[in-house]
Simulated scan of single mutants.
Amino acid sequence: MSDELIYQEHLIPMTRQELIEHLRAALRDKRFEHVLRVEKTAIELAGQYGVDVEAASIAGLCHDYAKQRADEDFIKVIKAKKLDPDLLNYGNAIWHGFVGAEMVKDELGVHDEDILNAIRFHTTGAAYMTKLAQIIYMADYIEPGRDFPAVKKARKLTRQDLGAGVAYQTKHTLLYLIKNNAPIHPQTLATFNAWVPQYGKEID
């Protein structure tokens, strides 16, 4: 199905095949294959949850567009666009979402805020996420190439209740960061507070 997508011009000023070529040039093979799997998962979830399939395809493909850019590129954009200066205290894991969305806008011509927010929030989540943002957050986590102890339950929950999937991922991401003494972005905490308590034992 994804190969048949042309894309409406208000979403992105190119065809899917043209976008694929941009991504192939920007990413190493392993990462490129990952974004294709995320796109496929996002399209499946979009069909299930009534979200625009073309938007899901674009966001799924573009979510890691900036993943392999040099740190200097991110820092330049943070300063030039006067983004939150606290971003400078983090690194690629945070930058390729928040700052990567700006690169997708400027370099690929995507101006749809729902798509851009899905890219911005795909690592930290957000207290409020549209269905599309929830789908990209989860598609990145549960795509078929992922293999970690929590992924089977994450897939099951996501198919049953998208919000439960969001809560489950957020809880496990926070536990992982704590276990590894990694810095926690404030938005990850905001996501936890907004999503996890309402699901309680369902996500244990």
Rank of each mutant, 00 (worst) to 15 (best):
E39H: 03
Q8C: 10
L45Q: 10
Y49Q: 05
P186I: 04
M138T: 07
D73V: 08
C62L: 15
M14Q: 12
E143M: 05
N89S: 13
V53E: 14
L189Q: 05
L87M: 10
A46M: 10
A59W: 03
A126R: 03
T188C: 04
Y128T: 12
Q17F: 00
P13M: 08
R120H: 04
G125E: 06
R155N: 10
H122W: 02
V151D: 03
Q68F: 00
K105Y: 03
D204W: 00
G163D: 01
E39G: 09
K79D: 03
K152H: 04
L174P: 10
T191Y: 04
I135V: 09
E113T: 11
Y199L: 04
A133T: 14
Y128F: 14
D71T: 08
Y49E: 10
P197E: 01
R31H: 09
K201S: 13
S57P: 12
G91M: 04
A70L: 14
L19C: 12
T130I: 06
E143V: 07
I115H: 06
A154Q: 05
F98Q: 13
M14R: 12
T158K: 04
I12E: 09
E202D: 09
L19T: 03
H63R: 07
D147P: 05
I184Q: 05
A139F: 02
M103K: 14
T173P: 01
K131S: 14
W195E: 11
A42I: 05
L116C: 06
R159S: 09
Y141S: 12
P144Q: 10
E9M: 11
D112M: 12
T170R: 09
A126P: 01
L175A: 11
E9R: 15
L132A: 09
L177P: 04
P197S: 01
Y90M: 10
E102F: 13
E4S: 12
G200W: 02
M103G: 13
G165K: 08
A80S: 15
D86T: 13
A56R: 12
K81V: 04
K152W: 04
A167H: 09
D140E: 09
Y90L: 04
A150Y: 02
A154F: 01
D29R: 14
G165S: 03
L23E: 00
G125Y: 02
A190S: 09
G60M: 08
I6Q: 15
L132D: 05
Y199P: 03
I12C: 13
T170H: 08
Q68G: 07
H63M: 10
V166C: 14
M103T: 12
L162G: 10
D106T: 07
L189H: 01
L162M: 06
L19G: 08
Y137G: 08
G47K: 15
P186V: 03
L27V: 04
A167D: 06
K40I: 00
F32C: 01
E72A: 14
L116G: 07
S57G: 11
L19R: 12
G91S: 12
A56K: 14
G125V: 02
I115F: 05
